[in-house]
């Protein structure tokens, strides 16, 4: 407490003790709720990943150690057979898809979001309308945008093929979402379209915090605008960008809905979340899917820790106060 209440030391102590006690009671319901929906289910998922539980008999699973992750058996012929997720090509394909998708989509969204933010940062006529228009993709539910784009990318009647044919960029109609080569492109396009507004908003907020007189000074000194951008704007924007990138990255690493709806069952786009749910629910390999979920969780946890540590990102906002 910066200033002390009127009465002496002992009552100040009891006051802060009373506040701390009240704080515990205020925090308890929230912590219990979070334990029930987050910590406990997570622990159970990890537990399931070490058993042979199936969807139909959730409580009959036996402890089988790391067999869902990796195990090997030596055949009498001397050949060794590896089993488990870590020896499953479908899993590594999903890992590769997830990483590829996350890196490319977040990189594109950052660059495009920055461009949109720089445009919105200018003063021009109709500024408010442009900002409103930019927010629209963000406001549309992911599933709805997946369906809208699915229709626009339709091979026979889609408008994208029509436009591209008319301007001569392609010669025949392309089945964007069904083709192995283009499915990932389609997913990336929709994701970038959908989430660039979010990036742009965070970048814009960062831009608005940069004091104007820095630009005035640069202008007086006659520094080229592009140089100003790289020497002044970008370094000052870095903290905001770092936070925006990590939140987008986390979202991208766990992507499920867009891929499930836009390119169902495509090997080229199946991500870790998609393949884990498939095993958990559809294929009745509950424990196997749990192992894959656990691996995704571990990957994200490692990534976040490394990012915060290496990038010295202040997420809690406690230090900036």
């Amino acid at each position: 407490m910066p200033s002390s209440p009127p009465s002496g030391m002992s009552s100040r102590h009891s006051l802060s003790a009373q506040r701390r006690r009240a704080a515990m009671w205020f925090l308890a319901p929230m912590l219990i709720a979070l334990f029930c929906v987050a910590a406990w289910p997570l622990l159970r998922t990890i537990y399931f990943s070490f058993t042979n539980t199936t969807l139909t008999s959730l409580y009959d699973g036996k402890w089988i150690g790391f067999d869902n992750y990796l195990s090997y058996r030596k055949l009498s012929s001397g050949r060794v057979i590896w089993r488990g997720t870590l020896a499953d090509p479908a899993w590594w394909n999903a890992v590769w898809n997830t990483v590829r998708f996350s890196v490319v989509s977040v990189a594109l969204e950052t660059v495009l979001g920055l461009i949109v933010a720089l445009v919105l940062h200018q003063n021009f006529k109709g500024h408010g309308w442009v900002r409103a228009a930019v927010l629209i993709p963000w406001a549309i539910p992911t599933i709805v945008s997946a369906r809208m784009w699915g229709w626009m990318l339709n091979d026979q009647f889609g408008i994208i093929n029509d436009i591209l044919l008319n301007i001569g960029l392609i010669e025949t109609k392309i089945a964007w979402t069904a083709n192995i080569e283009t499915a990932m492109l389609a997913v990336l396009a929709v994701d970038v379209w959908k989430t660039t507004p979010f990036m742009a908003l965070l970048c814009l907020a960062g831009l608005q915090m940069i004091p104007k007189d820095i630009y005035e000074a640069a202008k007086v000194d006659g520094v080229h605008p592009i140089r100003v951008f790289f020497k002044v704007t970008l370094p000052l924007l870095r903290p905001a960008l770092m936070v925006a990138v990590i939140f987008r990255m986390l979202d991208a690493l766990r992507i499920f809905d867009l891929i499930y709806v836009l390119t169902p069952n495509s090997k080229a786009t199946k991500t870790m979340s998609v393949i884990a749910r498939e095993n958990l629910i559809d294929f009745d390999k509950f424990a196997y899917g749990s192992a894959q979920s656990t691996l995704l969780f571990a990957l994200i946890a490692i990534f976040v820790s490394a990012y915060i540590w290496l990038g010295k990102v202040d997420l809690s906002g406690e230090h900036s106060k």
Binding site: P41, L42, R44, T45, S273
Partner: peptide
């Protein structure tokens, strides 16, 4: 948290 990590639990 990735939602899938708590799905089984």
């Amino acid at each position: 948290f990735p939602q899938i990590a708590v799905l089984a639990g």
